[in-house]
Amino acid sequence: MDAAALSGGFANPAIDSARVFREVLQAMARPGRIARISGVGPPPGLSPAAAAVLLTLADDTTPVHLAGPCDTAIIRDYLRFHTGAPVAARGRAAFAIGPWEALVPIIDYPFGSDEYPDHAATLIVEMPALAATGARLTGPGIRDEAYLSLPEIAPFRENRRLFPRGLDFIFTSGDAIAALPRTTIVGAR
């Protein structure tokens, strides 16, 4: 194990993760709103925002899928040491993390059942940048409309059609995060 994987966690886990969660909660409640989170020093290949979300939410009860360039030895070690989360295949994942091209197709992940729609994965999408432009968002959590630089449009529309089943998305870039729950209606701009 690379010693670098042992460092880079929260300095004060109870307080730091509370602050991160509050931003993630508000991001999920207000789709498209971009917030900044910090507190961790992740290994290369993982953004500080994505690492902070994982350290706040993942533990030994939540299998995590590492997609594409996020599946490196040091990221596996970092995840295991700081969260205890097992690394899993797509079909068993509670969380999946990676760039969009490595995560798709989204139909591979658990999207819940009609009786338990909450048994669905949350995808953490690493983005080159996040901006309040591009796809037009409406639905719960949004007063009039919001815009977010989504990587694609069609898969999110497919996801909306599954409601109440479906995946929920957290987008990360550097220390920025935004979210897109399954309820959001995605339109072209």
Partner: peptide, 17 residues
Amino acid sequence: KRMIRRALLKAVAIPGY
């Protein structure tokens, strides 16, 4: 707290469920 926080995020994503 992590368990409750994960439940809260799903609750927000599926309003009323």
